[in-house]
Design a protein around this nucleic acid. Structure first.
Length: 210
DNA sequence: AGAAGGATTATCT
DNA sequence: GATAATCCTTCTG
């Protein structure tokens, strides 16, 4: 039988609870070009109304509509005029929380990932960063809202090899400012310690005058 | 090695 | 009209 996807009920809780449990899971995407699969090594949780860093903070809009839907769907958004980022929608229908997929290790389709990531100098850079991850997988606008939990879907979230829980680390999210612009208020970024594919951006370096 | 600026457009104020 | 859950190239030390 086909490999089972991650259960939707597993994702139907707050993104903050789901995020660390998603480390080590595998996102696989198949297109006419072929299949690429990524084992997740770095993620970030985004909550709803209480989280100023979340797209859902100011309520439902056409862009973030998918976040408010049922768990187990993919929320893909376009940013900085040239990049896509992907989230796994969590929590129950009507409550908007999600997990941003920041980085991972390509474990299937390395040659196709390389073709999509021409600037990468080493395989570890194929999906090292949120926009790089979507690029390596070939995800874009048309993948916004797709179901990740149905067998036979071209885009699936699958269980990965077991993860050593003692390797899970947490820290401030990247590119998110808290109240007063003084860095992220919450340590809602999770990664696997020692993974070469974890994006290297330093957690919140305050700008210093020279 | 580290810092700085450009690319490029959807989205919301 | 400003900003953005970013990445890449180029400049400087």
């Amino acid at each position: 039988m086909e490999t089972a996807t991650i259960d939707r009920a597993f994702l139907a809780r707050p993104g903050l609870d789901v995020a660390p449990d998603l480390l080590g899971s595998v996102l696989r995407h198949t297109t006419p070009e072929g299949t690429v699969a990524v084992r997740l090594t770095e993620v970030e949780a985004y909550q709803g109304a209480d989280d100023p860093g979340s797209h859902a903070y100011r309520g439902r809009t056409p862009r973030n509509e998918v976040m408010f839907g049922p768990a187990g769907h993919l929320y893909v958004y376009f940013t900085y005029g040239m990049h896509f980022c992907a989230n796994v929608v969590c929590d129950v229908d009507g409550t908007a929380t999600a997990v941003l997929l920041r980085a991972g290790e390509v474990i299937e389709g390395a040659s196709l990932a390389a073709a999509r990531r021409l600037s990468a100098r080493a395989p570890r850079e194929y999906a090292r960063g949120p926009a790089r991850l979507t690029s390596a997988l070939g995800l874009g606008r048309s993948d916004n809202g797709v179901d990740l939990c149905s067998v036979g879907s071209p885009t699936q979230l699958l269980p990965g090899p077991p993860v050593d829980a003692t390797r899970v680390r947490t820290g401030p999210r990247v590119g998110v400012s808290g109240p007063g612009g003084d860095g992220d208020a919450y340590p809602w970024r999770f990664w696997l310690d020692g993974e070469p594919t974890v994006s290297p951006y330093r957690p919140h370096v305050p700008k210093r005058r020279k």
